[in-house]
Structures are given as structure tokens and as C-alpha cells.
Design a protein around this nucleic acid. Structure first.
Length: 737
DNA sequence: TTGATGTAG
DNA sequence: CTTTCTACATCAA
């Protein structure tokens, strides 16, 4: 059923898309597959009546993400709907357009992994390329079959489409190709019967070619590349941009050199390319445009990061940002449960609205995740607690990029868990925290927990995968280089078999080894697209609600407060007790003092830094003020760091002070003594700096002071290049272990 | 190691 | 020329 509808959809899509790029079509098919599922009635998104109509392809259908139609079927296209078109416009053009939400990738992801698991039954060498494509190296099976004397018919299409003479099968390469095509057919059948998925496959002797041939016969078919067809296949590409590995940026640079077509790239002088891209990249491109791709099929292990993001028209308040981050953390935590590992690094990325760089402008900040956050065994009811702690970390990172004291406009927030490692099983004693942290982590790393990460079991540790283009350098397969010549690739539309693996066949004529690529049109079951409410606000967790007050107990000298109550309280406290060093320490919310005290000093520092700095900043602000003049005299508006009006008061006062004092003189003298430095700056070192440098540094600290931000990181990705004050700062940091 | 950038689907 | 979501690699600092 699924497949039949799918087939129809594909045909339609195909017909409708004549002049367009291949790759785009692939993508559409995949989304189409998901639509297919909706018509199955397993999920309630599309009414029954519509299913019928949809299945006869009379209805306009689109997949919606946010306010965009990411893809749509041919019927919709007839009405003028296109990819990435706004919902509004699409509805105007096509009022009866049926939209299916496609933001929640859960089901796509799950199906994707089931597909690669299925492929792994045929060979452990399966490399994922996104959610819907896989390369499979079937060399071993091919070798075995070739030896068995049985010579199979070639299954599926061939490229180019020529008559094959009878004795052509005497050519070893053809035999291998035929075997590869058989395997591809078997794989596709397995996908169909096990998962109800249809796909295309390409069979060739390297990944590049397998991927490219796969697209020759679109819906649910497979194509094998004959040894002599490489040149012709490359010739089918309209521009060099269509070569996998040459993205939009690279292509623009090529155009700069007057190179657009594959032919032009092939003809381009090596030095010209080298001058523009460097020798390595240049060489890779030269190989690619000739259909040469020595990169091995590198088995994909479990994901190295787990991230989730949310985009929106505007996020302009701290409160809002926290809600969104909370929502992201919640879904991330759910995903984490299914994985046997825990993240050790947390990264927050934002995209600020900016006139020019609308899409390219993402900024991120990351930090280590204190191990105790995930350390405990029972994550049962701890989830919320963990989320609240993570949120605090996120907020800190967030504030390093966004000055919440000033109006801001974000269009995206992403939270990423990285450095995924097995959790420590021992109910870590305090000692473990201190000494063995890194060690035990490393040990554990070598013994991955037998959890249930999908492909984990079979797959090799970790692939040292490289980006497409770079990957071509590395493994110089001897076999390939000499046996060379042959170009047989097998690629199936949805399935790529990459038959030869460099590793194995040392001397073997890899030439014959087929590599297949599979691109299943996996059908995701779109169970609940509904919980992925787009712009919906997530229930804010208690802890992040602004007015929520202090929590836990105090540790000797430390007072704990929730982040939200935060600012106001912190600043006022500091006012009362301006004396640095021995002052009360304020910890972020949700951090248990006892646990905190057990953390390695550097982690403690990390956690405190921002809060301390905040305090410092306030205390310091007046003295620094003068330096700030030239900068932005005014803008003293309310530094409403907290979302929570009530607690802003104290803070507001203090900042306003700052503003008012602005007229002062003492431009640099103040720098010496009366000023508190950020915690990670050694006063001794600082005092020895040239005054102008001090001024420069103070300025930069002051700028971010208002908030938290220890890293004086305020945006400015470019600051690095100009190498100014921010970057200078690091040289004066205390060596913190 | 961090953060920006490029690529891919 | 937009704008979705996720994942990975490389490279400069």
C-alpha cells in the first residue's frame, strides 16, 4: 500500500519536475514518502475521505514546517506551490492544499535507523548520509558470489542504456556488477517487506558514482553503472554544483574562476584550482569531477550529538527564550533516554535577525556539563531537576551571546548535547568525582554500555568520517589506485551499495567491487505531528519561572537562588557586601551546594564565574563608567536581565547609577585599583599592562558586565580576526587548571 | 577546546 | 532569495 501510493507520488513528482535538479527531487520523494504514511490512516492527521483522494493523487498535498511548505506534490505544484513557499502564499494559490506537519522528526529519525539496521544485515559497512540515504559496501558478498561460479543476470537498469553482448559477462567486472545489482534488489526487497519502504538504488564501484547513478531511474528502481559509463554519467550533471561535495559556497568560488560546468572543472588547470582552494581540496575536486572517489564506506556509529532547535519569527524577551530553551531541553531529554549515553558538553546556538546574513549567522557557546547532572542512576523523577539545571547552564551560555539588557531579536535557538559518552555505573563516590573523572570516563568509553542505541552493536567504534569533499583524500586504497580504471558503480536509488572497501581487498581488483547506495524513501509514521506545535510555547518548568524563588539550603557560605530571582537579589546582595574575595557565593539555581562542593575546582569556577562576574560588574560599573563614555554613553536603559519585574528593582537602580555617572573623567586612572576584575583575570598580571590595554579590556568587560558573561564574548565573531580586546584577555587569565 | 563555516539530505 | 531541522567535518585561534 504504502509503496504503491509512494510510487504514484514519485511518478507524479517526477513528471512534474523535469528541469529541476536531481538532488532536489530526491528530497521531495522522501518527504513524499512521509506523506504517504499519512494517507495510511494509521495516524489521524488526514481524514479518511481525503486519504482516498490523496491516494489517487488528486489532492494538493504539502509538508509544512513552521510557516513554510517545505515540499509538496505535483498537484500542488500545478497550482503554483513550490518548495519553501510561505503557507499563506501557498494557500492563496491553492486553497484546498492539505498540509501535514513535518517538524517533528522523531518518526523520520526512527524509521531512518530501522532502515540502516536492515541494511546492516547485508553488510556491516553501512554509512548513513542524512536520514534517507545510505551507502553499503557489499564487496565481500560480491566476492563470495563471484567465486561461486554462478553468474547472475544483472538486475534493474544499466547506465548507459546499451545492449550488453552475451560474452560481456565474461568480464569480471560485469559479473561483479551483476552480483551487486542482485544484492541491491535483495536489499530493496527486504526494505519493502520488513518496513514497507520503497527506494531507489545505485550500484557502482564508488560512493560518488553509486549516488549519482541511483538517480537515473527515479521512483523505486535501481540502476547499475557500467564500467565505461562514468564519463557519460558525469556529463549528465548540469553544473559542478551537482557533484556531491561541491556545495553552494564552493560552487560560487568556482564560478569566480569562470568554472561552472563539470566539463569546465575537468579542464581547469590544477594550479588555478590550487590557488583558490589549496592543493588538497583542489585535488579532491579534480577527482570528483572525473567520477573518482577513493573514500571508503565508513560505518556510521551512534550520533555524536543530539540537538534540537526551534525557529521563529521573533524571540525578543529573556522570558520567552527560557521557555523555548526549556521546551528544547525537554524533548532532548526524552531522546536521551533512548540512548545509553549522557552528554558531557552543552551547546547553545542562536540566530540573530540581521539584515544581511540571514541564514549564515549563527553563534554558539558551549560548556562542560558537570557530571553529576546525569550521573545518578535513576533518572526517574530527576528529569525535571536535571532539566532545570541544564536550563541554568543554557541561560549562562545564552547570555554570553545575547545582551538581555537591550532589545534583541532572535529567530532561532538550538540546544545541542555533545560528547556523548556512557554514563558511569558506579554510584560515584566523592572520590571518583575528584580524581577519576576523566579516567573513568575514558575507560567507559572503551566499553560502551550495551544499551540499545540502534546500530550501535554492529558498528565499529566511531567512524572517522569526513566531509564529503575532504574524505577523498584520506584512505588511499592501494587496491583502488592500481586496479583502477574500472568504473562500476552500483547505485540504487535509495540504496547505494558501495562494494569495495579499500581495507579488505588488498590486491583485489577493486575495480569490480560494487558499491551501492540506498536511499530509502522511508515512510515515517507521522504519529503525532501535533505535539510539535510550532510556535507553541512550552510549559515553562517551575524552575525557570521567573518568580520562583530560592530553593535549597545554604552551604556554609553560599546561598543558593534560582536563576530567575537572581539578578535582583544578587546585585543587591553585592551592594551590601561589596567586598570581593570573601563574599558570599551565589550559585546558580538547582545546584546542590553539597554536590557543588565536590566538583573539581575548575568546574566550580566555571559555574560561578558568571554570577560572580555579574556582581563584580555591578560593583565596578561606576568606576569604569568613564571609560565607557566614548562607547555608548547612554543606552543605560533598564538592564532587565531578569524577566521578572519585581526583582529588577535593585538592579535597575544600580545600573541607572551607572548611566548617570557617565559624565566623569578619570578615564584610565580608575583602572588600577578600585576596580574588581573578572574572576578569571589575575590582578597582578592585569596591573602590569599598559594603561591603554587595561582601558581596552575594561571596556570590553564593562560592555558585557551588565549581565553575566564571563567570556566577554559578546557576539562579534569578527572580533577574533581583528584580534582586539576580547581575544587579548585570554592571555591574562590565571592558569586555571 | 571552542566557535565559525561548509556540506548534506 | 527565502527558509527547516539535524548531523558531521574541518580549521583557525
Amino acid at each position: 500500500m504504502a509503496s504503491s501510493w509512494k510510487r504514484k507520488y514519485d511518478e507524479i513528482a517526477d513528471n512534474g519536475d523535469d528541469g529541476t535538479e536531481e538532488e532536489e527531487e530526491d528530497a521531495e520523494e522522501d518527504w513524499g514518502a512521509s506523506m504517504d504514511d499519512n494517507t495510511q490512516g494509521q495516524h489521524v492527521h488526514v481524514p479518511d475521505k481525503r486519504q482516498r483522494t490523496l491516494s489517487t493523487s488528486l489532492h494538493s498535498l504539502g509538508i509544512q514546517q513552521k510557516y513554510i511548505v517545505v515540499t509538496c506534490n505535483y498537484v500542488a505544484r500545478k497550482h503554483g506551490v513550490t518548495k519553501l513557499m510561505g503557507i499563506k502564499q501557498a494557500k492563496e494559490l491553492c486553497p484546498e492544499l492539505v498540509l501535514v506537519k513535518g517538524e517533528d522528526l522523531t518518526h523520520y529519525r526512527e524509521m531512518s535507523y530501522r532502515i540502516t539496521e536492515t541494511l546492516q544485515k547485508f553488510s556491516p559497512l553501512v554509512e548513513r548520509l542524512g536520514f534517507d540515504e545510505n551507502f553499503v559496501d557489499v564487496t565481500e558478498t560480491v566476492e563470495a558470489r563471484v567465486k561461486s561460479a554462478f553468474s547472475p543476470q544483472l538486475n534493474g537498469h544499466i547506465f548507459p542504456e546499451i545492449e550488453i553482448e552475451d560474452d560481456s559477462m565474461k568480464d569480471e567486472r560485469h559479473k561483479r556488477l551483476a552480483c551487486g545489482s542482485q544484492i541491491a534488489a535483495e536489499i530493496r526487497e527486504a526494505l519493502h517487506s520488513d518496513l514497507g519502504i520503497t527506494c531507489c538504488a545505485g550500484i557502482a564501484h564508488n560512493k560518488l558514482l553509486a549516488k549519482l547513478v541511483a538517480g537515473q531511474h527515479k521512483p523505486n528502481q535501481q540502476t547499475s553503472l557500467l564500467p565505461g559509463g562514468v564519463g557519460k554519467l558525469m556529463g549528465t550533471l548540469k553544473t559542478a554544483r551537482n557533484i556531491p561535495g561541491i556545495g553552494s559556497r564552493t560552487f560560487k568560488r568556482l564560478q569566480t574562476l569562470g568554472i561552472s560546468t563539470v566539463q569546465e572543472l575537468q579542464d581547469a588547470p590544477a594550479d588555478t584550482l590550487q590557488a583558490e582552494f589549496g592543493s588538497q581540496t583542489a585535488q579532491v575536486m579534480q577527482q570528483l569531477c572525473r567520477g573518482v572517489d577513493p573514500s571508503p564506506v565508513t560505518p556510521t556509529g551512534p550520533p555524536q550529538t543530539i540537538s534540537d532547535e526551534d525557529s521563529f519569527k521573533k524571540c525578543g524577551s529573556f522570558q520567552d527564550a527560557k521557555k523555548r530553551m526549556t521546551g528544547l531541553l525537554q524533548s532532548l531529554m526524552k531522546r536521551l533516554k533512548g540512548d545509553g549515553r549522557f552528554p558531557h558538553v552543552l551547546r547553545v546556538t542562536v540566530r540573530k535577525l540581521s539584515a544581511s546574513n540571514k541564514w549564515t549567522n549563527r553563534e554558539s557557546r558551549q560548556c562542560a556539563i558537570p557530571s553529576h547532572l546525569f550521573g545518578t542512576q535513576g533518572d526517574e523523577n530527576k528529569a525535571e531537576e536535571t532539566i532545570s539545571k541544564l536550563l541554568d547552564l543554557c541561560v549562562v551560555l545564552f547570555c554570553k551571546m545575547v545582551d538581555v539588557n537591550h532589545p534583541f531579536h532572535l529567530t532561532l535557538i538550538n540546544i545541542c548535547f555533545a560528547k556523548l559518552e556512557a554514563r558511569s555505573k558506579q554510584s560515584a563516590s566523592i572520590k571518583n568525582f575528584f580524581q577519576n573523572e576523566p579516567t573513568s570516563a575514558q575507560i567507559l568509553k572503551k566499553n560502551p554500555s550495551p544499551k540499545k542505541a540502534p546500530e550501535q552493536s554492529q558498528t565499529p567504534q566511531r567512524k572517522s568520517s569526513r566531509s564529503f569533499i575532504e574524505s577523498f583524500f584520506k584512505p588511499q586504497q592501494k587496491s583502488l589506485s592500481f586496479s583502477e580504471t574500472p568504473n562500476m558503480s552500483y547505485l540504487t536509488n535509495t540504496v547505494h551499495h558501495a562494494p569495495y572497501t579499500c581495507t579488505t581487498t588488498d590486491q583485489q581488483n577493486t575495480e569490480a567491487t560494487p558499491s551501492t547506495s540506498f536511499q530509502p524513501d522511508f515512510t515515517a509514521k507521522n504519529k503525532d505531528a501535533r505535539n510539535s506545535s510550532v510556535e507553541t510555547d512550552f510549559a515553562a518548568e517551575s524552575c525557570c519561572n521567573s518568580d520562583h524563588i530560592p530553593c535549597s539550603k545554604l552551604n556554609d557560605t553560599s546561598s543558593i537562588r534560582t536563576l530567575s530571582s537572581k539578578q535582583g537579589m544578587i546585585s543587591s546582595a553585592l551592594k551590601k557586601e561589596p567586598n570581593t574575595t570573601s563574599r558570599v557565593r551565589t550559585l546558580p539555581s538547582g545546584i546542590d551546594p553539597e554536590v557543588f562542593s565536590q566538583l573539581p575546582p575548575e568546574i566550580q569556577k566555571e559555574i560561578c564565574a558568571n554570577y560572580q562576574e555579574t556582581g563584580d560588574a555591578y560593583r565596578t560599573s561606576t568606576s569604569i563608567q568613564s571609560l565607557n563614555q566614548g562607547h555608548q554613553n547612554t543606552h543605560v536603559e533598564t538592564p532587565s536581565f531578569c524577566d521578572n519585574p519585581p526583582c529588577i528593582e535593585g538592579q535597575r537602580d544600580s545600573t541607572e547609577e551607572v548611566g548617570e555617572t557617565s559624565g566623569c573623567a578619570k578615564s584610565e586612572s580608575g583602572t588600577a585599583e578600585g576596580i574588581a576584575l573578572p574572576p578569571d583575570i589575575d590582578p597582578a598580571v592585569f596591573s602590569e599592562l599598559p594603561t591603554e590595554m587595561k582601558a581596552e579590556l575594561l571596556k570590553s568587560w564593562q560592555r558585557k558586565n551588565s549581565l553575566s558573561d564571563s567570556a566577554q564574548t559578546d557576539r562579534r565573531p569578527q572580533a577574533r580576526k581583528t584580534g582586539k580586546s576580547p581575544s587579548i584577555a585570554k592571555y591574562f587569565k590565571k592558569t586555571n587548571s
